[in-house]
Design a protein around this nucleic acid. Structure first.
Lengths: 156, 156
DNA sequence: TGCTATCGTTGGGCCACCCAACGGCCCCCC
DNA sequence: GGGGGGCCGTTGGGTGGCCCAACGATAGCA
């Protein structure tokens, strides 16, 4: 390399910086993989959460994937328009919408999960399985400080 | 736990997801720390790179911190307007601007580095120093696949 | 002398993330 | 059983990071 593709930088020694770079690459890889099915990351995340949680309100969905209620509306709209989820008023609580995955949604989810997994494999291609687990464990403690340390069972 | 603050999700087992969450938290912490000095992350990154590289063209700066030339213009404009860097035409190559840090820029950089460091300490508060190093090493290999594995000297 | 590539700059667009407000509805307390 | 606090979905607006396209000026090379 004649030029200086990656200049030295004190910045690079900061976790936040590396984290941002790594996340950006992961985002890019996953996003373009999901694009093969016409899906975006948030849509995939929400669809996956719906598939796991069963009929669930949008608010709870939002909390589970950490997305703003505003954006959740748009995502569920899209998913519903594509016939991937159903949105039915909850008879027990008329404020809520019961969001549920459809058969088409499950098929789509299966494909996008496959694509997402492969993108993540590429993302961590340089890491051994053990290292990948190690990375995940460390990241989990960065994401939720104080949650794992004392062996707390947590929410799930 | 009555509610489900963090619902189970297959998504959460993906590196890209955890990476995104961790990066978001790091971004938030660093951004609000830097805000004390009226700086944004990109500005701090560029200023830091300028401080390290000495007089340098915007294009090279952009490559070193991985930022779009378009955005670099705005960042250097801001830094220049605040008197933190100087932008002088390069006599040897009249296409280029030689960007250099000023005395005020060095002072500002010293403070923002301090703030950034503290934010990163908080970000990795749950990690021991060894674990933090471990995380950084793993992240570096995620960011630049194939660069570290074979002991390649790289560009620097 | 041309051709190609780079540099700085301008313009536009996409996506994730966040805050504020509002009508509708539930639940609990009085 | 009536009222009030709080949650739900929805709409609106705003910011930051990232990427692509184009263009005039300039440098390097054939």
């Amino acid at each position: 390399m004649p030029e200086t593709p990656y200049a030295p930088s004190r910045i690079r020694s900061l976790p936040s910086w590396l984290l941002g770079r790594a996340a950006a690459r992961g985002h890019r890889l996953v996003a373009e993989a999901l694009a093969e099915e016409g899906m975006r990351m948030m849509h995939h995340a929400v669809l996956s959460a719906v598939g796991e949680l069963g009929p669930v309100s949008q608010a709870e969905l939002g909390r589970s994937v950490g997305i703003d209620p505003k954006d959740m509306v748009a995502v569920v709209n899209d998913l519903q328009a594509d016939g991937l989820v159903t949105r039915t008023p909850d008879p027990k609580d008329r404020r809520k919408n019961a969001v549920e995955i459809s058969a088409a949604g499950e098929r789509r989810l299966r494909r996008t999960e496959e694509l997402g997994d492969r993108a993540n494999d590429e993302l961590t291609a340089d890491l051994s399985p053990a290292e990948r687990e190690q990375l995940m464990a460390l990241l989990a403690r960065v994401v939720e400080p104080g949650a794992v340390a004392k062996g707390e069972p947590g929410a799930g």
